[in-house]
Amino acid sequence: MIVVNCPNCGPRNSSDLRPCGELTPRPDPSTASLSEWRTYLYLRENPAGWVTETWYCRNGCRRYFTIQRNTATNEIRDSEAP
């Protein structure tokens, strides 16, 4: 189990938080084509390396924040509120 640094609560076991996956900006639903929308829904870069992720501090401050995580080593840096 990895440790994730919540900007408010400090380092926490990842089981205290909810991973929300790679940060993917939401397109404008009134103009997005169906294919753009489905790219937002289903397609992720999923690199073996650094990725920006959203996490939710569900058992603590209940804030969403982003971190940088290296998916190959689980090294984590830059925790910040969105």
Binding site: T54, Y56, R63
Partner: peptide, 13 residues
């Protein structure tokens, strides 16, 4: 609850 917080915090802060 978590979904409402998600949109309020990350989409329409």
């Amino acid at each position: 609850w978590e979904m409402l917080e998600d949109y309020l915090q990350t989409y329409r802060p």
